[in-house]
Design a protein around this nucleic acid. Structure first.
Lengths: 156, 156
DNA sequence: TATTGTTATACTCTATAACTATA
DNA sequence: TATAGTTATAGAGTATAACAATA
């Protein structure tokens, strides 16, 4: 037998999803601040962590942000000792941005925090519930990607 | 019989959740921009829509933001014709912020967009899948609220 | 001629501190 | 004395445009 316990309307589900977005953003901002990081700067160092040293140009493309903006983000990260700017070995116009040792250990701590959060959120979920939730999440993600692709077109 | 189709690890589920946060933020920012709104300004007019005219002080408390910040948000909304500042009827220190007609119709459009997004995301989900997803969402939300309360304590 | 990163300028969101006008 | 909202000042993130050095 199957009991449906008032799953609510789509509108209510969206409200919950929006609350989730707000709470996750707050949690991330709070956690990153303890390492002296902001969300945009954390995004940049995360790219270095997972892709190695790169030019600011490549970072601007990956972050979908202006080159000028990257200059500011790197300035801040250099000031707090998490990254360095070095001359590019073959292209004298470009600079290579690399993680410092301290930057690398900060990233290791972020990885640990990431795993802890995953355990907190999903650790005590029953396997079947977890599977259903991930399925639903996949459905919503596909719809959202379609929507953003559709509305992003037509813009030269 | 019950087939579990590789639901993935908690870490992967969290990555999907984080992608969802990014995509919803992008979609909201993009949609609001069409109405000349930013996320913080939209939050403010949403409060007026659902609570009626109020003082800037009350808005600052509700938005958990400094009074100075509200001055700036209201300045912008007045400039774009979505709200008005009027003298408070009984307290001459305070100002009442109200939606203009144009502000109200913008809000009506936002409500419509909200319903459309809910339909897009959940409209063609099977009832059982929708119910399971909402259950999982509730679980995650409870954990997150606990986490933020716990880490938010001890701060005088 | 095209590209990399910078300086110059500007806008939005955010904060604290000092001040004005009122309670 | 306390409160509502402002001006003053500052910092972070974002953008475009003009410019330098180098490809």
């Amino acid at each position: 037998m199957h009991l449906t316990i008032s799953p609510g309307t789509p509108g209510e589900a969206l409200d919950q999803l929006l609350e989730l977005v707000v709470l996750i953003s707050e949690d991330m901002t709070q956690t990153l601040a303890r390492d002296g990081l902001t969300v945009p700067r954390a995004h940049l160092v995360w790219l270095l962590h997972h892709g190695g040293a790169t030019t600011q140009r490549a970072l601007a493309d990956a972050l979908k942000v202006s080159p000028r903006n990257v200059t500011g983000l790197v300035d801040g990260l250099v000031a707090t000792g998490l990254v360095t700017r070095e001359p590019h070995p073959t292209d004298r116009r470009a600079t290579l941005v690399s993680l410092t040792d301290r930057g690398a250990s900060t990233l290791a701590e972020m990885d640990r925090g990431h795993r802890e959060l995953a355990t907190l959120l999903f650790g005590d979920m029953a396997d079947r519930q977890f599977g259903s939730f991930v399925d639903g999440l996949g459905h919503v993600l596909r719809r959202l990607r379609e929507e953003l692709n559709a509305s992003g077109e037509g813009a030269p």
